[in-house]
Amino acid sequence: MQTVKMVVTGPFNAGKTEFIRSVSEIDVVSTERKISTESERVKETTTVAMDFGRITVDEDLVLYLFGTPGQKRFDFMWEILSEGMLGFVVMVDSTRPETFREARSILETFRAYAPTPYVVAANKQDREDAWEIDDMRIALRLDPKIKLLPCVATEKEMVKNVLLELLYSILADMESKGGG
């Protein structure tokens, strides 16, 4: 039995849990953990949820989708999660430009951990106040080569599309490297 994984990351409330839930064949498992904040002023403990979903491909291949904890100070988790992943999806809430900077920095950090392909999902495109894709590309300072895909995490077809685009990028990456 072979298992592979992809990571779904992005700022808190971007729609990571919803995204995974839409395609997972099992109920998304959230492991609630209490982690006390590292340095600063904040004294109380914070609950961090880690989601994961599963898609069985056939009797000997299973894909796991991991959602990262939203908050920045748990980025030590990202490194652990990113190990061995095929690729990752960065979820961005299109209605909350104040989170774009954070999304950008999560993206950069992940890219530093693992040089795998990734796509960016402009989520909540169903909402009236969602930013246009082109504007988001500029605001997020995304290279034209990087796919920025419209998404509504509650709509399975759109989630499938994001995952497929990521897989196409992974395939293209292999072909460019493996001389195929």
Binding site: Q2, V4, V23, I55, V57, D58, L61, L63, L86, K160, L163, L164, L167, Y168, I170, L171, M174
Partner: peptide, 9 residues
């Protein structure tokens, strides 16, 4: 493997 994933999704 990737092609299998694509077909499945």
């Amino acid at each position: 493997l990737i092609n299998r994933l694509i077909n499945r999704i």
